[in-house]
């Protein structure tokens, strides 16, 4: 636990924060291409954030301090979470303080505050969004936990660091349970980030919206922080997926070359999977809201099956 490690952890947080809008832009470009539209610039999310930060904040008359605290809390929690996931190096000093269960807890802390703040102003859309968000989360969160538990039982540890290095230590091995866990994780990723079978990130004013309904009353820098935080959340889920299912390239060393190589690999994975996400979203259709519990229930049960299969097959 040297100062270098702390520096690397801080560096990873900054890297995550800076990269997140780029990932959003990249996915957006691919979606536009696939839908035969002219794509916006890759830098478009940054421009939007910049513009929002300079706008004045308009608060609803009925808003309590909760609404003003939430954007900072949300962004802080997401930034922190991004720094906890082994994106480039595995030996992060904070990894011992926050294991995967605490990580899920941290994400749900942010979510509970977002939902509460949505109910704060007291509009029809706000409470609708909060209700739907909690509906999605009460199935997605246990599914995510079960995915983690599968991998935790494989490696006999709930610490992200040992979950990742455990795979590396045993060399190449095909885990059948990971197939189930991977599918479940993908389904949760789509649901938690408001992606297409569950929610559409691109529309407002649609009666089916979830995430957008919650953040209607934010403006200016508050909105910017929330948008940025949701971009970060997507990045968090991506890097979680990489760390757990495609852990090759992660380094334990503090040598410059190792880190550089891992960083390049990480960016490469993001590039490919970002495009993959856009493809997935384009080929699937948005579900009715009442199909969503079914979708998420399926994800949860798949994750449960994954952990069962681990115990059944002994691998």
């Amino acid at each position: 636990m040297t100062p270098v490690n702390w520096l690397l952890q801080g560096g990873q947080e900054i890297l995550g924060i800076l990269l997140a809008p780029l990932l959003m832009g990249w996915v957006g470009i691919w979606r536009a291409w696939l839908q035969n539209r002219r794509a916006p610039s890759l830098m478009q999310p940054y421009r939007q954030l910049f513009k929002l930060f300079h706008k004045e904040v308009v608060l609803a008359e009925t808003a309590s301090p909760l609404l003003r605290v939430t954007p900072y809390l949300l962004f802080g929690c997401m930034g922190l979470t991004a720094s906890l996931i082994p994106m480039v190096i595995t030996d992060l000093p904070l990894a011992g303080a926050v294991d995967v269960i605490a990580l899920v807890g941290l994400l749900s802390l942010a979510r509970v505050f977002l939902a509460l703040a949505a109910m704060d102003v007291g509009t029809a859309f706000g409470s609708l969004g909060a209700r739907r968000e909690m509906l999605v989360s009460f199935l997605a969160e246990p599914a995510l936990l079960m995915v983690f538990f599968t991998i935790a039982s494989l490696n006999a540890s709930t610490s992200l660091r040992f979950m990742v290095t455990g795979f590396a230590a045993r060399g190449f091995y095909l885990y059948p349970s990971l197939a189930f866990a991977g599918v479940a994780f993908l389904m949760v990723l789509l649901a938690e980030n408001g992606r297409i079978p569950v929610d559409n990130p691109e529309t407002h004013l649609e009666l089916t919206m979830i995430h957008e309904a919650m953040i209607l009353e934010y403006s200016g820098r508050h909105l910017a922080l929330i948008e940025w935080a949701s971009a970060l959340k997507l990045l968090i889920y991506f890097s979680l997926g990489f760390a757990l299912f495609l852990p090759f390239g992660l380094t334990d060393s503090q040598q410059g070359w190792g880190i550089l190589g891992a960083l390049i690999l990480f960016l490469l994975k993001l590039t490919v999977m970002g495009a993959g996400l856009a493809v997935l979203e384009t080929v699937s259709a948005k579900q009715r809201l009442f199909r969503v519990p079914e979708y998420l229930g399926t994800a949860f049960l798949l994750a449960v099956l994954a952990i069962l299969l681990h115990y059944l097959l002994g691998s």
Partner: peptide, 19 residues
């Protein structure tokens, strides 16, 4: 600054419209 709640621009909001 403070302003009336936006709520997608719907002007006639009452407390009964909340969940």
């Amino acid at each position: 600054r403070r302003a009336p709640a936006w709520d997608c621009g719907y002007p006639f909001q009452t407390a009964r419209m909340q969940d």
